[in-house]
Design a protein around this nucleic acid. Structure first.
Lengths: 344, 344
DNA sequence: AGAGTTGATGAAACTAGTTACATATGTCAA
DNA sequence: TTGACATATGTAACTAGTTTCATCAACTCT
């Protein structure tokens, strides 16, 4: 007991010395216990416990070249659609013994690139990004590091990265066609911020092209319940002849629904309402929200398998298209053409 | 050009050789460029670009002893309350140049312990867990690794780990007292699964102790909108004299509200409804949901600062109590004592 | 009995960085 | 002219593991 209290964490050499064996043997006890004689193994185990030895993840990683985690960059966690995506992603990555590091970008390409650099700096083996609009820095980073990276929530087979997602324009078109098919001719569209958000822009394209005798007025809102409420007030004040509100996100639709309820406007009798996303709660609002289902859970699973295959077997995934699906519930109703949009 | 295509990622030695300098100089160019002569620095930069050199995170980590990320174990991502917590956590960890690895436990202590081991294996420098009920394996892991770990969503100053959270029992009591203060005497309580969930159990304790002339009937439900809907149906079928429903989670309250709306029962006139959590959407339902605000964003910030201080300056945080707060909105109303619970 | 095989272990060379220390040059003042 | 000091760079020793190859003993086979 002459030396000063070392206090430092024990390493392999310390354990080897304490157990009276070589470092190789200690390493074997950790990684291939079957190849070590029982007696020796027990000596080593005792030393490990005695010294409270915990192997260093970094030292392992330096040898294997594997860190066993990937990074995901999402705009926000505050929208259930991303939470569901991440839940599926995390669960499925777990099947491949991979962990998930989450970073939020707030739809800012600069933040996205900076956080991506961060993820690389801490050793992410792959990246999952949202959409296909990114800062040049991010593209350069991926190129320079030869980093497996997948773009999600967007299908674009010719994009530089493999995409796993849906055709946002088609999803919006599906919603719009449902409304026009019901005879609606004056439709208010509520969408999230267009800035730096190619998903929203693509959805708007899907909406804008489809009109023939259909009047569409767009309202941009912050994607939140309260953003939907605000938009509803603007719509009601702007044009009394609107017979349907189409929201390019279920969160917005939920907000619109709440505001319409508060103002005593009955859905769907006085106003039809559509969403796009299909959140778990949307089936249970009163009335149930007609919407377009985006298979984000399957997207999370697909993205997880794809990135896992890429980082583990250098299998570059192919672009993968997921089909949106119209979900008919009770918030939309046929609009009498002669009475288009008039409140009864 | 006689050698076979190496294809391996370049390392520091390769760069040093290509630039005709020593490895130390290359390292300096990366970490302290000011100490290297401009001319030399440019030679090195050129070699770095040429060889597409990207420094290895693992090799850096082995020297610094820092991996710059912490792990968070949450029950699920499907409840907005955890999403908000994680959003604040991630944002605030970013201020400390720390990243966040997320793992979900589904309230299973076994999964929690396994995922915690995973997080340690990949090098997490600290852990954020939910609640104070954990598998012995997890306690052992934290003890053995001397791992900074903080328990959240629960305040228990005497617990083995520092806790940052609220008094769940007090929060529930706050809600109950609001209802009894309004004269409600027959109250249905809807709560999430008790199994492995000390937050729920604590909230139930807060509810159960407070009754004097108050009849409380508890209903367990899966925490989801549809779980709330189901519970509402059970309550309505079971006892027509119930005048108020108190949900120990806003998600459940939202489901109950939707089901009551669907059944044409007016809130609050025919039934008072309370939540507990205060989700962003709860302010905007029709009617607005009276609830108890849990400061989860502040909890996320506090947890981030605490774990950052611990891993970076070995400053063990003190337990920190956050105060829940009653939020009066429009879903509760005075109950006429003589007419307790009767539908008008 | 000698050769071949298997099992258990150790020495040392890897992985890819950082960094303490040594050295070489250049500038300035005494 | 020499000592003092700063600047720039290199050598080699670290960090903490894994892995290859060699060694040696014990056992089997001919």
């Amino acid at each position: 007991m002459t030396g000063p209290e070392p206090k430092k964490r024990a390493n392999l050499r310390d354990v080897a010395k304490a157990a009276g064996v070589s470092v190789a043997t200690v390493s074997r006890v950790l990684n291939a216990p079957g190849t070590v004689k029982l007696e020796t193994r027990e000596k080593v185990q005792a030393a490990i416990s005695e010294l409270r030895f915990v192997p260093s993840a970094a030292a392992r990683a330096i040898n294997s070249g594997r860190t066993r985690f990937v990074g995901a960059l999402v705009p926000t966690l505050d929208n259930a659609i991303f939470a569901r995506f991440l839940a599926a992603l995390e669960r499925t990555l777990g099947e491949h013994k991979l962990s998930l590091v989450v970073a939020t970008t707030h739809d800012d390409p600069g933040i996205e690139a900076a956080k991506a650099q961060n993820l690389v700096d801490i050793g992410a083996e792959g990246l999952i990004v949202s959409g296909i609009t990114h800062a040049p820095d991010l593209d350069a980073l991926i190129e320079r590091c030869q980093l497996p990276a997948i773009a999600t929530s967007f299908y674009a087979p010719d994009y530089g990265l493999p995409t796993i997602g849906y055709d946002n324009a088609a999803a919006a078109r599906l919603a719009l066609q449902h409304l026009t098919g019901l005879g609606h001719r004056r439709i208010a569209v509520v969408h999230g911020p267009r800035a730096n958000n190619d998903r929203t822009r693509a959805r708007l394209e899907g909406v804008l092209g489809a009109g023939d005798g259909v009047s569409v007025q767009c309202h941009e809102a912050v994607i939140s319940i309260s953003g939907g409420c605000d938009a509803a007030r603007v719509i009601l004040a702007a044009d009394a002849r609107v017979s349907a509100v189409m929201c390019l996100s279920d969160v917005l639709a939920t907000g619109v629904l709440f505001e319409l309820q508060r103002q005593g406007i009955r859905v769907p009798d006085e106003m039809s309402l559509m969403g796009l996303d299909d959140l778990p709660g949307s089936a249970h609002t009163a009335p149930g929200l007609t919407t377009v289902h985006l298979p984000v859970s399957r997207m999370g699973e697909a993205a997880a398998h794809a990135i896992a295959g890429w980082v583990e077997q250098r299998r570059v995934p192919r672009p993968y298209l997921l089909e949106p699906e119209l979900v008919l519930r009770a918030s939309t109703i046929r609009c009498d053409a002669s009475d288009s949009g008039a409140k009864k």
